[in-house]
Structure formats: structure tokens, C-alpha cells
């Protein structure tokens, strides 16, 4: 069952990704992106990361993508149907780089990892599942976030604040 779901999600995610890159209009790209994000969220669920899956859908597929949509509509980009793909030599070069990247990542994730990664890391996974049962999906993330990583967490808050101020300042029309 899990394997079937994984394959399903993976296919949708990959198809959405191609759609993002290849579709001619920004709105279509955006919708493909939402599909990809949702499938990835599904894969999170398969990996027992329920909290992250929820955030992925709420924050990413919900808030951020809507923000993109707002901007697209605000700038009235929908009419710009002109294909903005780069063809010719440049796309060939891009494919070469993509191939190289795939090679390096494949070697890193698959070729070089003949131990460990192929199994499921049963002990760690079991402990994680036990913690989820005990503290709940949110609690298992919240606990280290408010203890060991509290400084980073607070800095994240600061970053968001700065980003908001920056966004306001940048987007404000110059008088």
C-alpha cells in the first residue's frame, strides 16, 4: 500500500515539476507547483512527518503560492503568453548541466551509499514513531525547537520580521 502511494505521489510530483518548468503561462506553472507541493506533502505523511505535511499544505501550497498568484495577477502577467523558454544552444547547455547534477546527486544518494540508506534505519525510525505516539506529531518537533534550537528559532522570528519590513519598503511605490 505504502509503495503504491509513494509511486503515485512521486509521479504526480515529477509531472508537476515538469509542468512548472515547461508550461507557457505563469498561472499554469503555479498550479502545477501546487500539485507538486501537495504530492510532496503526501510523501511526508508516508514518512510519518505529519506536522510538516500539514505545514507544507497550509503554508506552502496555501499561503506562499497564493502570494505568488496575487503578484501574478497584480502585475497582470497572464497576458504575457510569449514563450520565455530559452531554446537552442542554451537549452542544450542547461540539459548538460542538469545531467551532470543528476549524476553527482545520484552518485551521492545511490551509488555511494551501499550501506545504510538502502535499509530504513529501523532503530531510529522505531524510536521516532514511539516519540510521535507519546508526544504527538507537533510535540516531537516542538520539544527540540524550544529547547536545543531556541536561539535559531528566535532568529527565524527576527528574519521573518526583517523580511516583512523589507517587503513593505521594497514594494512601496517611490514617491
Amino acid at each position: 500500500m505504502t509503495e503504491i502511494l509513494f509511486v503515485l505521489f512521486a509521479v504526480v510530483a515529477l509531472g508537476g515539476a515538469f509542468g512548472v518548468v515547461l508550461s507557457r503561462t505563469p498561472v499554469a506553472s503555479l498550479l502545477f507547483m501546487v500539485a507538486t507541493l501537495a504530492s510532496v506533502a503526501g510523501i511526508y505523511v508516508l514518512f510519518e512527518a505529519h506536522f510538516l505535511a500539514a505545514i507544507q499544505v497550509l503554508v506552502y501550497a496555501g499561503a506562499i503560492m497564493v502570494l505568488f498568484l496575487f503578484v501574478i495577477m497584480l502585475l497582470n502577467l497572464g497576458h504575457d503568453y510569449r514563450a520565455d523558454l530559452k531554446y537552442g544552444l542554451w537549452s542544450l547547455l542547461a540539459l548538460v548541466v542538469a545531467g551532470l547534477t543528476a549524476g553527482v546527486l545520484g552518485q551521492a544518494f545511490w551509488g555511494a551509499s551501499d550501506t545504510g540508506f538502502r535499509g530504513d534505519g529501523a532503530a531510529v525510525a522505531a524510536a521516532l514513531d514511539a516519540a510521535v505516539r507519546e508526544q504527538g506529531a507537533a510535540g516531537v518537533i516542538a520539544e527540540p525547537l524550544f529547547t536545543d534550537y531556541v536561539v535559531a528559532f528566535e532568529l527565524m522570528g527576527l528574519l521573518l520580521l526583517v523580511a516583512i519590513v523589507a517587503a513593505v519598503v521594497l514594494a512601496k511605490p517611490k514617491t
Binding site: L93, A94, V97, L100, T101, V104, Q107, A108, A112
Partner: peptide
């Protein structure tokens, strides 16, 4: 972006291979 990716690949490739 292209050149950046190439550079990252170079470093990463060196680390991996």
C-alpha cells in the same frame, strides 16, 4: 545561475567522487 550551478557541481563533485 548556470555558472553558479557549474561551480557548485565542481565542488560537490570533488567531494563526492
Amino acid at each position: 545561475a548556470f555558472v553558479l550551478t557549474l561551480g557548485v557541481l565542481l565542488v560537490l563533485g570533488a567531494a563526492v567522487f
